Computed example of a mutant assay.
Amino acid sequence: MTLSIRAVDGKRDLRAFVDLPFRLYRDDLNWVPPLKREALALLMPEKNGWFSHAKAQLFLAEEGGRVVGRISAHIDTLALTMPARQGFGPGVGQWGLMEAERQDVFEALLARAEAWLREQGMTRALGPISMSIWEEPGLLIEGYDHPPTIMMGHAKRAYRGWIEGADYRPVKQLFTYEVDITKHFPRLVQRIIKSGEANPRIRIREVDRNRFEEEAAIILHILNDAWSDNWGFVPLTEPEIADIGVKLKPIVFNDLIRIAELDGKPVAFMITLPDMNEALKPLGGTLLPFGWAKLLLWLRRPRVRTVRVPLMGVVKTLQASRLASQLAFMLIESIRQASVANYGASRGEIGWILDDNQGMRSIAETIECRINKVYQIYERDLAA
């Protein structure tokens, strides 16, 4: 049978693009089926604010009228303006959302994605990034033995060899850390926290969900400042925040998202989410016929094993100070207590964290976290 690669065209192709992983991973007990409507929304410019500064082309691989692979090629215009020393910069395109039945299918898809990037004037490719750096960057290379938490990816073991066999070299690793949150942190950390609690200049407060847009603006300001020197940083924009807010608002709880204030000014934050994957896994990607009722019941007051910290940050002016780690420990401890008491959680996951982010890695190690998953991003010169 002849293998063909073609561009996605229309809603039917989009559905085929989304449906493929459901077949490829149906026997993988650690894959979590996403809600299909949310997976479709990420691909649609009218529903994903990332497209306000990016463009993408999706491709399907077909053989005998059957879809056997998929890939995206995309360009983030904001990423093109970032300093090259931070990973992106002029001429850097990306690919992602890659799934394939066989290596030859992957190779054909990758060649087509690279050709599209060259046509757009790109000279270097990073991947996999699916599709925004803020969504699911990197290929899982360690930690296949347990399901990912919300907004983290899963992949087949074979993909690593396929990518490296296509002359891609590792450029960055992303870690997630897990920790038993039923236990108190080490005594040194407890002393640092108590010292902060006694400092009248410091206030740790819950966010107010009733002022969602205002609180989101505060967090966005801190985030874009705190992360601005990180590898792969692209500033989150207001359209993206709006769409992320719509997606995540059902699992935003006041006691799991907190802001640290110093002399009345917001200087740090920590976002924690109950692991919705625990509720989604049994639904098989659809809310019909009764999944909607089960999910609605869960959302009223989640009871979970795991809570995930996808984002936290301290303003840049404080990052070299002892106060930065003190604020981080205070935020973590206040949310740890709420997670155990109010959601029944016993496990926390922090990340992703860049391999060269020594500050965050040190904080994770000090509270006795351990790395549980590793994701890897690859690069290749498109002129080669």
Rank of each mutant, 00 (worst) to 15 (best):
D180T: 09
I193F: 00
I150W: 13
L223E: 08
V374D: 05
Q103N: 05
K294S: 14
L117H: 00
A341Q: 04
H221N: 06
R370L: 00
L35Y: 02
Q173T: 08
R157N: 09
L323G: 11
L223H: 05
D9S: 15
F51R: 03
A113M: 03
L256A: 12
R361G: 15
L280Y: 15
Y378G: 11
G89Y: 02
A108T: 04
V314T: 04
K265C: 02
V68K: 10
F269Y: 05
Y343H: 09
R201S: 14
A279D: 08
A84P: 01
F233S: 02
P200N: 05
L223G: 00
Q86V: 08
A279K: 05
N199W: 04
D13E: 00
Q173V: 07
A279E: 12
R203D: 10
L273W: 09
A338G: 01
E38R: 11
T149G: 13
G93S: 10
V179Q: 06
Q94N: 14
F175H: 06
I257D: 15
M312Q: 08
D255T: 13
R124K: 13
A56K: 11
Q94L: 15
N210Y: 14
I129D: 09
F269M: 01
L109S: 09
E63G: 12
A328R: 02
K55Y: 09
N224P: 06
R203E: 15
A125V: 07
G96V: 09
L299Y: 11
A166W: 03
N48S: 08
K316L: 04
V374C: 00
R12C: 07
D76T: 07
Q190S: 09
R112C: 12
T2C: 04
R347T: 15
L139F: 08
G69R: 12
I332K: 00
V314Y: 04
V234K: 01
E178L: 03
R191N: 10
R203M: 14
I259R: 01
R187V: 15
P148K: 04
L288H: 08
P310W: 12
E278Q: 11
D104W: 00
K194Q: 15
V67F: 11
F106K: 06
P33C: 05
I141W: 06
G313I: 01
L42W: 12
G291F: 07
A54D: 05
T176G: 00
I377K: 01
Q173A: 10
Y168G: 02
E135K: 14
I192P: 03
R112N: 05
L295T: 14
D145I: 02
L20E: 12
V314W: 00
E136H: 08
V68F: 02
E107I: 09
I332F: 00
D243F: 06
L220Y: 00
W162M: 10
E62S: 03
N372A: 13
V307T: 08
P302F: 07
E365A: 14
W298L: 13
I71D: 04
V315E: 01
V32R: 10
E142F: 02
E46D: 10
V207K: 12
Q94P: 01
F22M: 08
A61H: 09
